[in-house]
Simulated assay, not measured.
Amino acid sequence: MSTYLLDKFLYTVDRDPDLVERYREDPAGLVAWWEATQANRILNVTDGEASTWLAFTDAERAALVGHDHVALFAMGAHPFLTLTLFIAMFERDHPEPLSYQKGYGAALAHFSLPYPDIAT
């Protein structure tokens, strides 16, 4: 399991409105495309350098495809990265102010200290 790779996915998708929409509409397709083409690129390097070994585990892939922020948090994905990305994708579906954010927090309420390690 690689919290770095989970966080890298969340970070890079959140910074591109087109990727946010692709992730909302076709999570399996976007996760597969991203893993095949972006996972091994060096962050913030445009061309020429890449690693060759990074890949999601089956559990990570399933959580990403399922938009399962609770499972991602349990795996160590940074909660601010999931929150900002998921707000971009799902806040529009919740008409009451902050209702998505409150639901996000309520879904994590069963966790107690110490929280999963979110260090990368």
Results as ranks from 00 to 15, higher is better:
Met1Ile: 02
Ser2Met: 02
Ser2Gly: 00
Ser2Gln: 10
Thr3Ile: 12
Leu5Ala: 01
Leu6Tyr: 00
Leu6Gln: 02
Asp7Lys: 13
Lys8Ser: 06
Phe9Met: 06
Leu10Ser: 04
Leu10Asp: 03
Leu10Lys: 03
Leu10Ala: 02
Tyr11Thr: 13
Tyr11Glu: 10
Val13Gly: 01
Asp14Thr: 10
Arg15His: 10
Arg15Asp: 11
Arg15Phe: 01
Asp16Val: 12
Pro17His: 06
Leu19His: 03
Leu19Asp: 10
Leu19Val: 01
Val20Ile: 15
Val20Leu: 00
Glu21Ala: 14
Arg22Met: 11
Arg22Pro: 05
Arg22Trp: 15
Tyr23Cys: 08
Tyr23Arg: 13
Arg24Asp: 09
Asp26Asn: 11
Asp26Ala: 09
Ala28Asp: 08
Gly29His: 02
Gly29Ile: 05
Val31Gly: 06
Val31Cys: 10
Val31Leu: 09
Ala32Pro: 00
Trp33Arg: 14
Trp34Met: 00
Glu35Ala: 05
Ala36Glu: 11
Gln38Val: 06
Ala39Met: 03
Asn40Leu: 02
Arg41Trp: 01
Ile42Trp: 04
Leu43Ala: 08
Thr46Val: 11
Thr46Ile: 10
Thr46Arg: 14
Thr46Ala: 10
Asp47Cys: 00
Gly48Pro: 13
Gly48Met: 13
Gly48Val: 05
Ala50Gly: 10
Ser51Glu: 14
Ala55Ile: 03
Asp58Phe: 10
Asp58Leu: 14
Ala59Val: 12
Arg61Leu: 05
Leu64Asp: 04
Leu64Glu: 06
Val65Ser: 05
Val65Pro: 06
His67Asn: 13
Asp68Cys: 04
Asp68Glu: 06
Ala71Glu: 13
Ala71Cys: 07
Ala71Tyr: 05
Ala74Tyr: 02
Met75Cys: 02
Gly76Lys: 11
Ala77Tyr: 04
Pro79Met: 03
Pro79Lys: 06
Pro79Val: 04
Pro79Trp: 03
Phe80Ala: 14
Ile87Arg: 15
Ile87Asp: 09
Ala88Asp: 15
Ala88His: 13
Met89Cys: 15
Met89Ser: 06
Met89Leu: 11
Met89Thr: 10
Glu91Gly: 01
Glu91Ser: 14
Asp93Lys: 10
His94Lys: 08
Pro95Phe: 01
Pro95His: 06
Pro95Ile: 03
Pro97Lys: 10
Pro97Leu: 06
Leu98Trp: 08
Ser99Phe: 02
Ser99Thr: 05
Ser99Trp: 01
Tyr100Gln: 10
Gln101Ile: 15
Gln101His: 12
Lys102Pro: 00
Gly103Lys: 14
Ala107Arg: 15
Leu108Asp: 07
Leu108Tyr: 04
His110Gly: 15
His110Asn: 11
Ser112Thr: 15
Leu113Phe: 12
Leu113Arg: 13
Pro114Ser: 14
Pro114Phe: 08
Pro114Asp: 09
Pro116Glu: 07
Asp117Leu: 05
Ile118Met: 12
Ile118Ser: 11
Thr120Cys: 08
Thr120Met: 12
